[in-house]
Design a protein around this nucleic acid. Sequence first.
DNA 1: TATTGTTATACTCTATAACTATA
DNA 2: TATAGTTATAGAGTATAACAATA
Lengths: 155, 155
Amino acid sequence: MNNETFNPASQPSVPENTSSIVDSLAQLSYVIQSVLGRSGAVYDLSPIQLRLLGILRDREPSMKQLAERLELDKSSITGLIDRAERRHLVERIPSPEDRRGFNVRLTPDGRRIAREIGGEIERRIGELAGVLTEAERGQLASLALKVAEARSGPD
Amino acid sequence: MNNETFNPASQPSVPENTSSIVDSLAQLSYVIQSVLGRSGAVYDLSPIQLRLLGILRDREPSMKQLAERLELDKSSITGLIDRAERRHLVERIPSPEDRRGFNVRLTPDGRRIAREIGGEIERRIGELAGVLTEAERGQLASLALKVAEARSGPD
DNA sequence: TATTGTTATACTCTATAACTATA
DNA sequence: TATAGTTATAGAGTATAACAATA
């Protein structure tokens, strides 16, 4: 059954038949994280640095906004950005609106790496999803998005 | 579009329409990891300690087997198990077959916590999946499992 | 006073290299 | 010789508490 996750033999809790969906989603998320991890490793990026680059592809958030999105303490963000800046992946831009704050953005180097690694991930997850038919992939994408957005809320 | 992940505006790569499935799977995996993280935090467990407990629910693997499953160096496993043992969550059992080796198993305390946290996760992911209909949940569980097992292989 | 971000500190998590004990 | 695991070491990642500068 390949269950390394948590399906506690389940008394029904919220909806019916919870255990199956819980377990398969947890399982899937570990597989995806593993794929992301390998893709990042190709460019010597940790999971959190990889995620940072992903976020910054189309945003220039403040330190505070990064803390909220990554669910990390602001002091953790300081260190994260310090290390990314040391590698010339990102840069702090003084906020034009608040002299206490900074916005963070990709450097040209950072953007190039983000693009390359994006291709890597695309290839690897695409391969993974290759076990599904085109119709199934569409279904899965749609259902996954629905769940994901239920939680984070659409932009 | 709430895309903090990597959909590189996609030239078609492996199958057609990759970008959508890649992005939604990555997105979903971050949401699930976040839910798991919060659940673990309730019991002051890091993501990796949580995953360890999940694995040990129905196994007593050797240190080496843990390293393989978690995709970590053996020396990382030493530290991981040291810290878990210090918290009385797991214990090392000398392997009956190889005097160099140990098997790792849950203590009664560890088992109790694993069970409780399992309920917590069940509840939270169940709630998340509550945005889907029963039929959709079944579909998602089935598709997710198919992808997950394509990679890790069934037990 | 409240908020944004940094610093100091301590701990967890991780890998590499060298090592011990056993196979 | 090869393998299972540990130790020493170094660095990334994280949180808490105290702080500085600005709002």
